[in-house]
């Protein structure tokens, strides 16, 4: 096991870890604001075209959306357990849990892929590519455009999170992290939880409410 290296600008490892954690929270804050702008445009257009918007969302499969919610919440739970066990120096167990979380991420993407395939088949596509209904009421196209943009941006975050989870899982297995060193695992976990939180809001907005 390699001990954590104290870099020049910090007095103690504790301060160094705090700086890493604080920076991650700031990054997550800016990520949330990126999604926040999209949530604001969602609210704007839903307020402007209430009926057309809801008509677009009615077409989404609540069963698949809810499945994905359960999958992501469970993956968040396994990540939290992984972080918990790496702190207790159970590196192999933590590696297994992080790998399991990566697999849950893949399940999420497969389910989302089925939904996308269905939408593509029906030509329920964003903006100028839309041709699902010939004369859609105003707002339907905007609803689909925001649906695609917000879920696809979230999907990209899932892919990024899966890559990072896989990397820390391998490094945990190799014994790089443990009680002496785990901030990187924590920070990757924080990123994954953010992905979960964004979906916790996307799910009611695009699947549940009418």
């Amino acid at each position: 096991m390699s001990a954590q290296r104290l870099v020049e600008q910090f007095e103690t490892l504790e301060k160094q870890d705090h700086a890493a954690r604080l920076a991650m929270w700031m990054f997550l804050g800016s990520e949330t604001l990126l999604f926040g702008a999209l949530f604001a445009s969602y609210g704007y257009y839903r307020g402007m075209y209430p009926s057309g918007f809801v008509q677009a969302l009615h077409h989404n499969s609540v069963a698949l959306g809810t499945t994905n919610t359960v999958v992501l919440i469970t993956s968040s739970f396994t990540v939290a357990l992984g972080v918990h066990f790496i702190r207790e120096n159970k590196a192999r167990l933590a590696a297994g849990l992080l790998a399991l979380s990566t697999a849950f991420g893949a399940v999420f993407l497969v389910v989302k892929g089925f939904e996308y395939a269905h939408h593509i088949h029906e030509n329920a596509l964003p903006a100028g590519m839309y041709s699902f209904v010939d004369q859609p009421p105003a707002g339907v196209v905007l609803g689909y455009t925001l649906y695609w943009f917000m879920t696809a941006l979230h999907g990209l975050h899932v892919i990024a999170g899966m890559i990072m989870l896989a990397v820390v899982a391998v490094l945990c297995w190799k014994g790089r992290y443990g009680t002496h060193r785990y901030v990187a695992v924590e920070n990757v976990g924080l990123y994954w939880h953010l992905v979960d939180v964004v979906w916790i809001f996307l799910w009611p907005l695009f699947y549940l409410t009418d």
Partner: peptide, 27 residues
């Protein structure tokens, strides 16, 4: 965790609430 980390979460919530509320107030 320390309050500094919580402060970032609080500020993010406030900014998003402000952004969404003012934007949606228009339509």
């Amino acid at each position: 965790q320390r309050f500094a980390n919580r402060l970032i979460v609080i500020l993010t919530f406030l900014f998003i609430a402000l952004l969404v509320a003012l934007t949606v107030a228009d339509p």
